[in-house]
Design a protein around this nucleic acid. Structure first.
Lengths: 202, 202
DNA sequence: TTCATTTTATGAACAGTGTTCAGTAAGTTT
DNA sequence: AAACTTACTGAACACTGTTCATAAAATGAA
């Protein structure tokens, strides 16, 4: 049936129209200044229409989060170019931190905000993040016994936590307490990440 | 003038009444279910009255954050009992992580939420956190050259970031991606913190 | 005590939020 | 052409933080 196909296609196009508008507004205006009404205005539909395509705002946010994870994964593929696994691990960490610096609002949505996670019903599942996490896990596997860790899961969580800790303290303005001049904050974050990598290596 | 003294005292009592009610609601009901109207209801005043004592919600939140930092500092003093600085550093990190596990909503207010930081006008100042941060910085100083770090600021940021990274990934449900059974999440967080301490030591 | 002034508290309103739903208009099938 | 289905929306609901004119109470001066 050609019509049902077209209808399905149009439905997907509408969903894309909505999340593209949402994503653009998150990046440009920030998360807090982006409401359902704002998104509706931008795409020239009524707010109620959005609810025909997404159950609620959380579900919409989860979808945008998915797009953001695609961008992160693309950054990984583009920036992690070395063959030596230890070098790859370093490139990965800096790619991750850099993503946080360049897209703080997307980072928020991916790793800090509560809202999008409310759309994940399953207790132990978060498909949006799988691809990126596996990318990290694979690199750590390839490092074999070159790291001072016995457990690869702990190694992965260690790398992730130091990266996330640095970025989120920065994004949420907690590094203020160290009273560093503004242009040195980035430097000390990068230096701390480098030191962590150094300590991890055998 | 006795009357002005009493008035000032009453003003401070009213401010305390408000933040105590707010704090109790954050802990009991969670941050998202605590509105100015809810707090006003609890203390049996009109919402408008709260604005006679606090400029806006952000200022109120900043004050509650200050109370939360007092509690964190008290936990440090109570739980960091060793004399050896390396041991003290370990006790501090676990005290910090434990605080996050036991008071996730206060941790939110202290280290994750944007709102309370909007009440900090100064670019490079965050008095609420000073005491707790200096406690960490002092311990690291006392470690002297026993750590594999040249720069004490980097050592401090490294410890803080790993602790914050672990807690905030947990609180905001991002550790889901590792697909661990619920009772093992705490274990792997603690194990990762322990490994970090091990790597830091000479 | 009486009157004027200052302090303290509030009801009602404003502009915003996410969300629902009856009603309308357009598209599709018979 | 009529019946049915799908797509869309205006208006409303219950909530949010915040402001402000108004009222009540406390204080100071006569």
């Amino acid at each position: 049936m050609g019509i049902t196909d077209r209808k399905e296609r149009e439905k997907q196009e509408m969903r894309k129209l909505i999340i593209d508008a949402a994503m653009e507004m998150f990046i440009k205006e920030g998360f807090e200044r982006t409401s359902i009404r704002n998104i509706a205005d931008k795409i020239e539909y009524s707010p109620a229409t959005i609810y025909l395509y997404y159950k609620d705002k959380d579900e919409l946010l989860y979808e945008v989060q998915g797009q953001a994870f695609l961008e992160l994964y693309n950054a990984f593929v583009k920036e992690v170019t070395a063959t030596d696994p230890l070098e790859r691990l370093e490139q990965l960490l800096f790619s991750y931190i850099n993503f946080g610096f360049e897209h703080p609002d997307l980072y928020d949505l991916m790793f800090i905000l509560r809202a999008p996670m409310k759309a994940v019903d399953d207790e132990n599942d978060w498909p949006n993040c799988d691809e990126a996490y596996n990318y990290l896990a694979d690199i750590i596997d390839k490092c074999g016994d070159q790291l001072r860790f016995d457990n690869p899961q702990i190694a992965a969580l260690s790398i992730w936590s130091i990266g996330h800790g640095l970025i989120s303290l920065y994004i949420r303005e907690r590094i203020k307490v160290m009273q560093l001049p503004d242009d040195q904050i980035r430097n000390i974050i990068i230096a701390t990440a480098k030191e962590h990598l150094r300590l991890m290596k055998k």
